[in-house]
Design a protein around this nucleic acid. Structure first.
Lengths: 215, 215
DNA sequence: CATTGTGGATAGTGAAACTATCCGCTCTCG
DNA sequence: CGAGAGCGGATAGTTTCACTATCCACAATG
């Protein structure tokens, strides 16, 4: 497969492919001459991964590069790599309030969750706790801990779902395959759950606005 | 409150406030002279809303403007406004495959969900169905409908949760308040649920990597 | 052997979200 | 009352991001 074929197969413009090659997001093809190279299914898979991270996950190219680097590092243990990928996926200019951050950390500790102290996801959760608190979305006159506590009833089912998700990854599959399933699975399922939730909200809102006539 | 005070209270730089005023995201203050104006708590609330939409929801200023316009249009029915806000929140360069789109539409019809035919959320869901399908994340050899069907068991609880969320909005509250709760609530809860899910994934991954010693 | 395609390099583009200056006026404080 | 800080309004500049366009010398192909 030459670059034009890769472009056609991936749906990405030829200049974009060259750009990704330059940036190191896509590894060079197998050289057949000084100015000719051959691309394969691996390149196509890589491109689908990049697009999924970009479009579905909303990641910038810099963060995508970090995810790819972690995925490519064969010596890295699986869990470790997943952590790096998670951090890259959460990378944003976070600025949760110290109070929200502390409440979040207490929430994690209280439930005995094994989450790295430096994991970005802590800031991610703290940010939303801040918003729920600031807009009094968990009822009025609550502190950050009370807001975090509102998440308590959701945790068991969320933990069970996460465990099921990881259990569905075939343990015998090669490392790259397992990572792809966990990393892309994370963002694809997230996107699906979000969309489902919004669907449900629109439906519920429609019902309230104009209830179906009984009978 | 003069603009410098508004800047201090909101944490946004003075040039940024001027920029928002220019862009019409923030309504002008009450003029007290040709070059003096007074700002109030309403401006502060508006700024918090803008920042929540931007940082938490990841919306661009153009989409934020659409949300604000819908919220500001007092004559618009509540459900209608929520639809506009939802569409703005989902606005991205979507390009789901026709197959995924069709499967999504069938999913919605099959469950009798009242979702506008033109609602952006359909494309949102279709996109994730595409990804789940492309990466065979619902098991191999399935078509788009089978992938969508994997969401079936999640729907009842999601619908119930959406109904609870809307039920928690005080019906007696003024329109602006109700909208704030639904719009900000939508994105803040989304962010919280996502973070919770990632927390659970990291925890589950850690358990698999190094199970706690029994005893 | 002419056309088309290719890898590699360099430079340019357009959108997005601010940021910096300037100006003439006004409020405030000594 | 007068100086200086602060203000609104306007114009222009900056940075980052993710591409996109050109150019080149050379290979592949009909």
């Amino acid at each position: 497969m030459k670059i034009a074929a890769l472009s056609a197969a991936s749906g990405l413009s030829l200049p974009t492919l060259k750009f990704y090659l330059r940036e190191g997001l896509l590894h060079p093809g197998q050289s057949t001459a000084v100015n000719q190279a051959e691309y394969d299914q691996g390149h196509l898979r890589r491109l689908r991964l990049i697009r999924a991270l970009s479009e579905l996950g909303g990641l910038g190219l810099a963060d995508i590069r970090r995810v790819l680097a972690a995925v490519d590092d064969e010596d890295r243990p699986l869990h470790d790599t997943f952590g790096v990928a998670q951090d890259a996926m959460a990378a944003r200019p976070h600025a949760p309030s110290p109070a929200a951050r502390a409440a979040t950390d207490r929430f994690i500790h209280r439930h005995g969750l094994r989450v790295r102290p430096e994991a970005e996801v802590r800031a991610l959760l703290a940010e939303s706790v801040d918003a729920l608190h600031d807009f009094a979305l968990c009822g009025p006159a609550h502190d950050h801990d009370a807001v975090a506590a509102a998440l308590d009833p959701l945790l068991p089912e969320t933990l069970a779902a996460a465990d099921r998700a990881l259990a569905s990854v075939p343990a015998a599959a090669p490392r790259g395959e397992q990572l792809l399933v966990t990393v892309v699975g994370t963002i694809a399922w997230e996107a699906a759950l979000l969309a489902l939730r919004r669907l449900a909200l629109e439906h519920a809102s429609a019902l309230r606005a104009a209830p179906p006539r009984a009978g």
